[in-house]
Design a binder for these strands. Sequence first.
DNA 1: TTTTGACTTAAAGCCAACTTCAAGTATTAT
DNA 2: ATAATACTTGAAGTTGGCTTTAAGTCAAAA
Lengths: 130, 130
Amino acid sequence: MRIAEVSEKYDISPDTLRYYEKVGLIPAVNRTGSGIRDYNEMDLKRIEFIKCMRNAGLPIEALTEYISLVLQGDQTIDARKEILKVQRELLVTRMNEMQKTLQILDTKISVYEGTLLKKEKEMVQKDKAF
Amino acid sequence: MRIAEVSEKYDISPDTLRYYEKVGLIPAVNRTGSGIRDYNEMDLKRIEFIKCMRNAGLPIEALTEYISLVLQGDQTIDARKEILKVQRELLVTRMNEMQKTLQILDTKISVYEGTLLKKEKEMVQKDKAF
DNA sequence: TTTTGACTTAAAGCCAACTTCAAGTATTAT
DNA sequence: ATAATACTTGAAGTTGGCTTTAAGTCAAAA
C-alpha cells in the first residue's frame, strides 16, 4: 500500500507518516525498486497503534524509546513494561483532571440553561469566578 | 496577595501568571501604589478555574473568548453557553480516546506480566503491532 | 511522448503555550 | 545605606509536533 492510500485510510498526512518513520515511531517501511514506500499489514497495525497512543497524548519520545526496545528483542521486556506503566499512570492522572473539568463545565452549562434548583444555584454562585 | 505567593499556591510561575493576564485569560489584577499586582479572592478563584480548564487541555483562545464575553455582560449568555458546550463535547471525545488507549496499555502490561489466560494471549498476539 | 501527479529528501518554517532575557525600578534584610 | 531580592515591561527564545518548501525523480494517463 502506498503512502497516499495509508494517509487517507488513517487520516494522517503523508508528511506526518514520513516524519513518524524518520523519528523512529514506525520502523523503516519497505520500498519498491524505485524507492517508494510500500506499507504491509504489520506497518498498518503499527500506524494504528501509534495513532491511538498519540491521540491520547503519549509523547513521541516515550513511544520511540518503547519501539526501539521492542526492536532490540526479549531482554528489554522489563524496561518496556516500565515505560508502559509510567505512561499509563500519567494517562490516568490526566483523565482524572479532565473528569473534574467536565463536571465543572456541566455545572456551568446547567446554570446557563437555568436547569438547577434554587439551592444548587446559590451554592454554585458562591464559588463562581466567571 | 502578591504574585510570588500566588505562584507558589497554585504552582504556576509568575511569568505564566503575567502571561495569562496579558492574553486575557484573567482580567487585569489590581495594583499597589507602586504598581505591584495585588491578587484578591476573585482573582484567585479565576486562576483556579483557568488552571483547571488548561489542565484539561481547553485552548487558551476558547477561554479568552469566553472570559471576554463574561466581562461584556448578560447579553452574551447564549454565546458563552455555546462555547462551553463545544468545549465540553471536545473534552468528552478526548476522554473517550484516552479510555480506549488505557485499555490497550492495560492489555499490553498484562501480556508483559504474563497474567493473561492462554486463550487471551493468543487473541492479543494476533492483533499485535509492537 | 509529454504532461500530470505522486513520490523522494533535507531543511526551514509554523503554531501554541509558555519561558527566558534584558534593562530597569521597588522593597526588604542586614 | 547598601546589597539582595522581587517586581516591572516588551521582546526574543524554546519545545513539541508537525507542516511546508525546494529541488528533484519516477510513473501512469492522454
